[in-house]
Design a protein around this nucleic acid. Structure first.
Lengths: 127, 127
DNA sequence: CTAACGTACAACCAAATGGTTACACGACTC
DNA sequence: GAGTCGTGTAACCATTTGGTTGTACGTTAG
């Protein structure tokens, strides 16, 4: 983890990923760095439209562009994706925290240091 | 993994996560199931606005509602988040595939299986 | 029964999105 | 220098989004 995504950055990342064309562009860019026009050839839409999608991915720091001659080479920034993954992981961590709390309650029905009391741990459902 | 998210489902999930209010609602719902109005109290905006956010999360299958008396209880669906995490993992898998390919090329400078024919495997694009 | 509560939904509005076409610009090719 | 290729950007349009207010409806409390 480097800096942790701010709210705005997180918005941008998830919004950028919420479009099938952009996810596809990202996949291609991951498999092989390539120019915007090379990417644009693969899609039905206009060059300008593809360029806009690339711009959205770039603003989200999911890809970066690098000039090479007259071309602009698109490459993926995997760290940003990793940070998004971490963020999703935080939700799952919250869930684990919660089940922990619940187990504590079931373990200590009214007794904070484990004593007597035949506590039946009536397990509730889990996902 | 259960069914794997379709393109439309993926759109919905990432779009739903691309809003700070909705992420916050999700966190609260994960920590503790609660009614829509209980959630709505926490935010500046109108009840209807919060209700819309909940609807977006529900359409994305990130949360589900369950009637309890006159209240509608919101609970998180962690499996959907898990599938989103898998999806991000696929991007990283693509990256690993790629580095693998590159290493192979470096290892076999011009020799795919130690045989004749100096065929230069000048990799073109992929489908 | 009536009142209040929690929810749903419609109509409306401003702003953002995803697409288009058209045009300007920089960098190679000839 | 002229032309072309790859990019960037602007203007425009339809649709979606995120918010508002208002209204209706089922359920629980008195």
């Amino acid at each position: 983890m480097v800096t942790r995504l701010s709210d705005d950055e997180t918005d941008a990342v998830f919004r950028a990923l919420a479009d099938p064309t952009r996810r596809d562009i990202l996949r291609r860019a991951i498999r092989q760095e390539q120019s915007i026009s090379a990417l644009a050839e693969r899609y039905e839409m206009s060059f300008a439209a593809v360029q806009k999608h690339v711009a959205v991915l770039e603003r989200a720091a999911i890809i970066e562009k690098q000039r090479r001659g007259k071309e602009q080479i698109v490459r993926a920034r995997l760290e940003t994706l990793a940070r998004a993954t971490e963020l999703l992981g935080e939700f799952e961590a919250l869930w684990r925290e919660r089940t922990l709390r619940i187990e504590e309650l079931l373990a200590d029905p009214a007794d904070p240091a484990s004593e007597t009391t035949p506590t039946r741990p009536t397990e509730k459902g889990h996902p």
